[in-house]
Design a protein around this nucleic acid. Sequence first.
DNA 1: AGTATGACTCATT
DNA 2: AAATGAGCCATAC
Length: 136
Amino acid sequence: MKKTISKKKPASKKIIKEKLPIKDNSKNFSFYEDVWSVALQIPKGHVTSYGAIANYLGTKLSARMVGWAMNAASHSKAKVPAQRVVNRNGTLSGKMHFETPTRMQELLEKEGVKVEKDKVVEFKKIFWDPAKELGF
DNA sequence: AGTATGACTCATT
DNA sequence: AAATGAGCCATAC
């Protein structure tokens, strides 16, 4: 994947990449792309949280940016499985940003993830921590 | 260049 | 246990 960001892409003024284990990627990848890269690696049927991704990127205190990146991803051509990214509670906090509020849940259930009342069932069980799984 | 906002999270009340 | 404040940092205006 190569800069699908099109015209306006954030100039990486921040050097969070230094902390990234995946420097080869970070070299030319922006913060968003870093987030997407992680999101794309989430195994099917598993989910992770904004904070986990943020933590992996070294900015765990700013999980907001991850969500922001997801928002940008939706607008981008990159197909990021944003449905696999939920908040720390396992709640589909971002469902309202999908095409339809129910789309996120449907996508998850289609992948074998049970969702109930906007929350991932057994969230802890299928939780996928990038910092852990990717060998931080 | 300063202010406001957000698909978050944590600590305190 | 629910509500509130604060921290975080990139974007938009």
